[in-house]
Amino acid sequence: MKAYEIGPQSGLEGIRLVERDMPVPGRGEVAVKVHSACLNHRDMLTLKGQYGPLKAQDRIPLSDGVGSVVALGENIAGIATGQRVIAPNFVTWLGGKFTPEIFGQDLGISRDGWLAETIILPADAIIAVPDNVSDDVAATLAASGSTIWHCINIFGGLQKGDLVLTLGTGGVSILTLQIAKALGADFAITSSSNAKLDVCKDMGADYCVNYRENPGWATALMTETGGRGADIVVDTAGLNSIEQSIAACAPNGRIALIGGLSGQPEKAPQMGGIIGKNLTMKGITAGSRSMLCDVVDLISRENIEPLIDKKFTFGDSPAAFAYLESGDHMGKVMITF
């Protein structure tokens, strides 16, 4: 079978297409023929050697995907060949609280991911895809969806009418918009592009701020909301811009830190805003299988269609990474097989 490997992790040019033997599922495992896969920012960082320690050069990347079961290992019950499935990127985090051990089985990072014609997954990690959820939708959900659910529900304690704020218009931010609106929240979002903000408005965003036109975007947002701060912030930018997220919060707000797109912090955030507003900040590293199940149920029930910016063929996978790196995308970048 064909698969991509991350290679030396010296840049996007290091990814390589290889031939491998067809994988055979072991006890408690299933083989899955991949239909589609999606990229996340961490996949790009991995190819650059910027996502923790260097990985094995033969690691297969990508944490998000969908496929159909084609073979069963021993001791498998309740799963049939032909069944469409997805899985959380942390395949051993089935439920309960986070533990560091989950990093040992992280798809595309510490365990082979979705960018191959056939992959092996633990049977207890997979989730059946409902009939009314297409492959395009299902392929976007695993890492992003579970992370969002962890941020706004498990940590954020979302209540109907809360104001949720997210930064930028990448795949996580746009899916956050769709999930939060489906749960009855008000929504605010930032971008450097007015055209992208117009799309967000059409998708239901209540407040939109261009951070390039308004470097002090938190003040601009407060003006637009009439002084109402965000109850929950899904912060993809990181500590280099955390002062703005703090300023944009309502008293007792919750800030979920899930990324570092703004780079390394130049200075530590001021404690005054955190203490003065009684804010809670938490790092979120994706979510469990249980959380992803809740996302799939919501997506199926509400017929949510995540925004897919552009599709690439399996053979053109390197171009998909380059497009993600360009930052021109809005929503998800997909690879189809």
Rank of each mutant, 00 (worst) to 15 (best):
P215F: 02
G216E: 05
G216P: 07
G216A: 13
G216N: 15
G216W: 04
G216H: 15
W217K: 02
W217P: 03
W217D: 04
W217I: 04
A218G: 12
A218D: 09
T219R: 07
T219V: 12
T219M: 10
T219S: 08
A220R: 06
A220K: 10
A220Q: 08
A220I: 05
L221N: 08
L221F: 07
L221I: 09
M222C: 11
M222R: 10
T223K: 13
T223Y: 12
T223S: 13
T223G: 05
T223M: 14
T223N: 06
E224F: 15
E224L: 13
T225N: 12
T225D: 09
T225C: 10
G226P: 15
G226W: 06
G227Y: 08
G227H: 12
G227D: 10
G227K: 09
R228Y: 08
R228D: 12
G229N: 09
G229D: 10
G229T: 07
A230Y: 01
A230S: 09
A230C: 09
A230Q: 15
A230K: 05
A230E: 06
D231M: 04
D231I: 09
I232A: 03
I232W: 02
V233Y: 05
V233W: 02
V233P: 02
V233H: 12
V234M: 06
D235S: 05
D235M: 15
T236L: 08
T236C: 05
T236S: 07
A237H: 00
A237P: 00
G238T: 15
G238P: 02
G238F: 01
L239D: 08
N240W: 04
N240E: 09
S241T: 07
S241I: 03
S241Q: 15
I242H: 00
I242A: 02
I242W: 00
E243W: 00
E243C: 03
S245M: 05
S245F: 03
S245N: 11
S245L: 07
S245G: 11
I246H: 03
I246A: 04
I246P: 00
I246E: 00
A247W: 06
A248I: 04
A248M: 11
A248D: 01
C249N: 10
C249L: 09
A250D: 04
A250W: 02
A250F: 05
A250E: 15
P251Y: 14
P251I: 14
P251T: 11
N252E: 13
